[in-house]
């Protein structure tokens, strides 16, 4: 199957079934791929420690100033979207709660909002 066909099939699936479960699936996939990329970037940034403590401190200072401070809020949002949706999937899988998955979704959205409120408070005040 060609990748372009596969991608348009995914698009059709989304359009055919535009409900909460589909959107959480798309979000889970996108945030998952972003985090998989992030873990490699993270290790590369921290590898500055192999050139000594000063190098580590300089490299870390570089990614903690200016726009990075605000990007961190986005990173935390991505982490908790993926984490809470993943826990929702796991609970539905292992505790036979498939029929409750929409309730669980709203519960995880509620927890996400609470965590993001704390995040904005910590980062902006």
């Amino acid at each position: 199957m060609k990748l372009s066909n596969a991608l348009s099939n995914t698009k059709n699936d989304i359009l055919l079934n535009p409900n909460a479960g589909t959107f959480s699936y798309v979000l889970h996939r996108l945030t998952g791929l972003a985090l998989a990329g992030y873990i490699f970037a993270h290790i590369i940034v921290l590898s500055a420690v192999l050139s000594g403590p000063e190098s580590f401190t300089q490299r870390l200072a570089l990614v903690q100033t200016g726009i990075f401070h605000y990007l961190e809020i986005g990173l935390i949002a991505v982490i908790f979207i993926h984490m809470l949706n993943g826990l929702r999937i796991t609970v539905a899988d292992f505790a036979n709660l498939t029929r409750l998955h929409k309730t669980l979704l709203w519960l995880s959205i509620l927890i996400f909002c609470a965590i993001m409120a704390v995040t904005f408070y910590v980062f902006l005040f």
Partner: peptide, 8 residues
Amino acid sequence: EINFDRVF
């Protein structure tokens, strides 16, 4: 800010 000394 997080730096080497704090992590260490």
